[in-house]
Design a protein around this nucleic acid. Structure first.
Length: 575
RNA sequence: CGGAGCGUAGCGUAGCCCGGUAUCGCGCCAGUUUUGGGAACUGGAGGCCGCAGGUUCGAAUCCUGCCGUUCCGACCA
């Protein structure tokens, strides 16, 4: 491609609205342009990279027997109502105003509706179906350019199996394909974590994470590398609160203006906050009225709301202040499980507090706390779950290593859906005994733009992007310096012809006239093509040209006759 | 959805407090000179000052409402 004909609107300065490196660089390198919040146009340079990623994915999906589809973005409300997701997705789903249609945030329903009349015998199974298609999610807050957008491209794949063993195989095939995909994309580190399957429903679930400060997820990885988990489901070892069996009776004491656990610890002059039971109240919004749940947790721990969702569903939210007063008779900071006036509240506690006594908690009266609370004695009907958020530096559950918490971008997600959608939509098949069963499904996604942006996050410097390997949009850029020299012009043209026509090497040729060398150098560094071939009068006088490696900055002066072979060699090494 | 900020030329901005018809830089166009790391000079084009209403002789500036957008928190590929 000749740069004189290529639409590449590069920017000298960072756009003021961009914060993360990938966002800044994608705009500066002329890859994307924002149309409105969370909605981007992909300009030719950006699209080239997106196509590279898509093609890698396509090859790996086909390699495990995947069938490529292209489903509609529009689908009828009715279909989503059948699985209950019209409600479950809520405001996250874009709805068409003048038709009973939605813009698909994902495609389980549509794929299942195709499977239903077609996959009717165990002989039709297994199948792997996928598409690369635009998804729409009405995100409350789009962020960081394409890392979190309202419109984005996703590769979504679905497996259909007759048995759970077969599902395991489909899932494992997909996991292998995903590893291949991200390796081929050139990531230096990809961490596979166990995850919560969220609004999709399902059991086994793993996420493919690229560690990055721009990431929105926190992942817990053990130092020995044997445990990796999204913080949402991460478990760790911490000693539980010991039962003392002292049977001391509850005493109320005055705690003026004490609102937080830290203040309380200072007030009673203790450093050990584990016996200061923190009480948080959640509302579970159900079809037949609100259910209130009080969660007790050690004072030095935080409630992991994802773990709550696992037990109580997606519609759980923290209670508001007015609700707290109504339920407990006190404001946040003074509430507790003992002597609640409102008996309708369900009380649960973290496993670490199982049967603990001599606890301190709020008295359900402002500015008062109680001590010697005994959960076994004073809170009948209390239930225990794992509810705490794992913390940096804690031991792993097996006590063999310690956890590190890292920010990461979720680029892919695989999970076993089971029969939820097949049952809801009636996708049944006949097994060898002639018995009818629901098809067993898996669901597998990759965010295309996220993959591109994550790559830039981990591969750039202060000059710009540094592409490498298969996703590099061009392998070589020719910088022709000094358009007044016919010799420079002719030789540049010749290199361009040889590289593209004879060696099929993807080459961008900066043939722009009246553009100063400095501009060409800086644009080349910004757009990050791995190898630069620089042709200028200075070196050409000696019969030489220059080859620069973008990543290392290394410059090689080469005889002009040897340059093509040298470049081909370097390209081969960097792919 | 809660909290904070910002909307002035393609991009980045000054002006806003204290009302008088918009500043500067980059970019763009023309010419001259330059030419290996974002050139210099000269001349030029480009603006519903986010939108609507109000106050006023007069509004980018003051008031009200709306819209857009960014960032920090609750959601997901």
């Amino acid at each position: 491609m000749r740069l004189s004909k290529f639409f590449l609107p590069t920017l000298k300065d960072d756009p003021v609205d961009a914060v993360t490196s990938s966002h800044k660089l994608m705009i500066r390198a002329g890859m994307i342009k924002q149309l409105t919040a969370g909605v981007y146009s992909y300009l030719p340079f950006g699209l080239l990279v997106i196509r590279k990623v898509e093609n890698i994915i396509r090859e790996e999906m086909n390699a495990i027997g995947g069938n490529e589809f292209l489903l509609p973005a529009l689908s009828p409300n009715e279909l989503w109502a059948q699985t209950g997701r019209l409600e479950d997705y809520g405001e996250l789903m874009f709805r068409i105003k003048n038709r009973e249609l939605v813009l698909g945030p994902t495609h389980e329903e549509v794929f299942t509706s195709i499977a239903k009349p077609s996959l009717i015998s165990y002989k039709d199974l297994p199948q792997v179906w996928y598409q690369i298609q635009t998804k729409f999610r009405n995100e409350d807050r789009p962020r960081a350019g394409v890392l979190r957008a309202r419109e984005f491209t996703m590769k979504d794949a679905y497996s259909f199996d007759a048995t759970w063993e077969q599902l395991d195989k489909s899932y494992n095939d997909m996991a292998v394909a995903y590893r291949n995909i991200f390796r081929r994309c050139g990531f230096s580190e990809i961490i596979i974590v166990s995850a919560f399957s969220g609004a999709m429903g399902g059991s086994d679930s793993e996420e493919f994470m690229i560690p990055s400060p721009a990431g929105e997820d926190n992942i817990a990885v053990s130092e020995d590398g044997k445990y990796a988990s999204n913080i949402e489901v991460a478990e760790s070892y911490k000693e539980s609160v010991e039962r003392k069996n002292s049977n001391l009776s509850i005493e109320k004491f005055h705690t003026p203006d004490i609102k937080s656990i830290d203040e309380l610890a200072d007030f009673i002059k203790t450093k050990d906050k584990s016996r200061l039971a923190k009480s948080r109240v959640y509302v579970n919004v159900t079809g037949n009225g609100n259910e209130y749940i009080m969660v007790l947790i050690c004072g030095d721990d935080e409630v992991n709301e994802k773990k709550l969702e696992k037990h109580f569903g997606m519609n759980i939210r923290p209670a508001q202040n007015e609700e707290l007063t109504e339920i407990t008779g006190a404001d946040a900071g003074s509430i507790g499980p003992a002597g609640l006036k409102n008996k309708k509240i369900r009380i649960i506690a973290d496993n670490l507090l199982k049967d603990a006594d001599e606890l301190i908690s709020g008295a359900n009266e402002n500015d008062y706390h109680i001590k010697n609370l005994d959960l076994k004695r004073d809170v009948p009907g209390i239930e225990y779950f794992d509810l705490r958020l794992a913390k940096e530096g804690e031991e792993t559950a097996d006590r063999k290593s310690r956890l590190k918490i890292t920010k990461a971008v979720e680029v892919g997600h695989i999970y076993k859906l089971g029969t939820k959608y097949a049952k809801a939509l009636g996708a049944m098949f006949l097994d060898a005994e002639g018995k009818e069963n629901p098809v067993i499904m898996g669901s597998y996604g990759i965010g295309i733009q996220r993959t591109v942006a994550s790559f830039i996050e981990e591969s750039h410097d202060d000059k710009g992007i540094i592409w490498k390997g298969e996703i590099s949009p061009f392998k070589v850029i020719i910088l022709s310096l000094g358009d007044r020299s016919e010799e420079v012009r002719n030789l540049s043209e010749e290199y361009y012809r040889i590289l593209t026509a004879e060696h099929k090497t993807e080459t961008l040729y900066d043939d722009r006239k009246e553009v100063r060398p400095g501009v060409k150098f800086n644009d080349a560094d910004l757009i990050g093509i791995p190898v630069q071939l620089i042709i200028g009068e200075k070196n050409l006088k000696e019969g030489n040209v220059e080859i620069k490696i973008r990543k290392s900055g290394e410059r090689i002066i080469s005889r002009k006759e040897d340059a093509v072979n040298k470049i081909l060699e370097i390209v081969k090494e960097t792919v």
